[in-house]
Design a binder for these strands. Structure first.
Lengths: 356, 356
DNA sequence: ATCTAGTGTGCATACGTATGAAGCAATCGG
DNA sequence: CCGATTGCTTCATACGTATGCACACTAGAT
């Protein structure tokens, strides 16, 4: 028996009316007193507080939501939780949202698009973080029509909205520069999906960076695929069959790169002696001794938290504290776009090309 | 301009009254028609459906929740999302809950215990999945007092409730048997926290299994710590300083084991030549070529999904479909307890002890 | 003593949906 | 031809909180 209620009664279904009765005031006064309305006298506040405490009163979120039309819930839409990348967005998102007084509802896009959209616009969330990839769906347009505020996180779409992204083109360039500097000429790439801004921009930047050095990607050394472990594992096998094989591979993100490294380990391919591998994101796993992945770092945690702040500011109509470091100077009433700077991180998966 | 509404009006704030007006019926009739109440005539249903479609009506979840006292939301409480273990619970949980018509709210226990508890019992969720470790907190008791149904997932607590767990003792025994069979006598262990049933039971089983072979764990070869990567990394360093050092280490779960392997790689310790390492859970990462971790497998996916089903059955008062394979025969009205069978999976991180 | 300003509380009602009960019309049996 | 039954719909209201407005009461000014 842990600390039971002294009188053995249950604290279930206690409403503000019960508190009001006990405190000898009206229900609205309870509401005001507990919400800190300055018009309520100190004495009354004290009585109400005591009554609420005695009854173990917790305001009903449903009642509050219906009355205020504010749910204090934010949805987060991701592609696939078991992909090692997403937790590093979802974790910080959760923490920042909680700190801002919002709860997090989690959705994955696996569900039928139409049915899922229904559930998103039933006013049970105040806003939505889009961290998913399939932005070519009609979802953003639908959200726009329903006036449900949303923010792009690590992605961008055609429908205008707040967005927090890395400078993916610059990141791609950085990798190209490093590989060229190391002396590679036969370079391959495993880009992300075409229908993601992330995949597309990294590709553009990478190709541009190579072009600046007079290098072109051979089609046989290029793959596209989802940002998954298996994408990397499979692409490596295919590259090894190419003649000539590439001496370096740029991967759409770290998860893909780790898929490559893992497959290389299985196939006995020495990294970086036989093949240089570079990722993108610098998730914690990239720095494990097992991988020591050279990659492009950006502040994932800050990116997620910024997205949360942008969205909450928009949802709450409070545009004051919208200026974390890195915000574009675009202070207009329109969309905000935060771009984080990428940095190359040299670890142990890239080196000079093998001497033939 | 994607498909705009033909008349340019917005579908925001449409209520059942608007639908009723357009369909020429009363608001309650709209509610009944859309919910499939058999008392509504076919003709009326058709008219209401058309009106709802024309207005792009989506019922307000807040209104529905308030009226029915059912939120169709289930909370999931985890310790830390960025721990590679949890996504493998949260992912399947989300999918199963969605399939059952429930939405998922995600909470982490990082927040202040008291404040967090408040948010859990404000009737904004119908039930809670406890996948977190600190069950010695007062939370389960508080949930009990508030009559908020919950289920233990991969954990058990003192407050009676539905639970889905692996047979952790048996799992610990299995590992002990394997290590003994391989010829190890100087065996170490990195157990989970004392205040988790998971950590405790695996320890009990492991010690029992060793005792059956007449082997005891030396205190210098034993560590306890959270189920995290760093726990394993740090413990390995300490074990290497012991004299004699253990020739095999059982880890509280795979994440810890991978921490050990990673640290071994950094320190140049050969696995399994110099040290055997065994984990627990068989998360997908364990089978990566980079680790090839010998471990104890159980069906994580099924475990999570079963927890979701148990909880939803209890929440919805529907105890019918409560019999997935593996359920204990305990068909009484009390708590249900599902125990999954563990199996040893031999990969490449365990072998005979090194010849001295 | 009367009027004004200010302070604190209660009243009425909104928010959107669901549901028991009552009403109404049509059909049926006697 | 009337009462009973059935089928469909509306009425009234509940759910729990928040808030505009009216009202009561106190204190200070004239």
């Amino acid at each position: 028996m842990l600390d039971r209620d002294r009188n053995g009664e249950e604290d279930v279904g206690i409403t503000s009316r019960d508190v009001a009765r006990l405190a000898g005031v009206s229900q609205p006064t309870v509401s005001r007193a507990l919400r800190g309305d300055p018009r309520v006298s100190e004495d009354t506040v004290r009585r109400v507080r005591m009554a609420a405490e005695a009854l173990n009163y917790v305001p009903s979120e449903a009642g509050r939501s219906l009355s205020t039309q504010i749910s204090h819930r934010i949805g987060v839409l991701v592609t696939d939780l078991t992909n090692p990348f997403y937790p590093h967005l979802v974790g910080p998102l959760h923490d920042e949202l909680e700190q801002l007084g919002y709860r997090m509802m989690l959705f994955t896009e696996r569900s039928e698009a139409t049915a899922a959209a229904e559930r998103l616009v039933d006013r049970s969330i105040d806003g939505l973080v889009l961290a998913t990839s399939t932005l070519d769906s009609g979802l953003p347009a639908e959200l726009d029509r329903r006036r449900l505020p949303f923010v792009y996180l690590n992605r961008e779409g055609t429908v205008p909205a707040d967005a927090v992204v890395v400078d993916n083109r610059r990141g791609g360039e950085l990798v190209a520069e490093e590989l060229v500097k190391a002396g590679h000429t036969r370079i391959g790439a495993i880009f992300g999906p075409d229908n993601t801004s992330t995949g597309r921009d990294r590709e553009i930047g990478f190709r541009q960076g190579l072009a600046d050095a007079g290098i072109a990607l051979r089609p046989a050394h290029v793959r596209h695929g989802p940002f998954e472990f298996d994408t990397g594992a499979q692409a490596l096998a295919e590259f090894l069959g190419a003649d000539p094989a590439p001496t370096a591979v740029f991967c759409g993100n770290d998860v893909v790169a780790i898929g490559v490294i893992d497959a290389a380990r299985r196939l006995g391919v020495g990294i970086p002696e036989q093949l240089s591998v570079v990722g993108f994101d610098d998730i914690p796993m990239a720095s494990w001794a097992s991988f020591e992945l050279s990659t492009v770092r950006h502040d994932l945690d800050e990116m997620a938290r910024t997205a949360a702040r942008l969205l909450v500011a928009r949802v709450s109509g409070d545009d004051a504290d919208l200026h974390p470091s890195g915000v574009d100077g675009n202070g207009s009433a329109g969309q905000r776009r935060v771009t984080l700077e990428p940095h190359f991180v040299a670890r142990r998966t890239h080196a000079e090309p093998p001497q033939v």
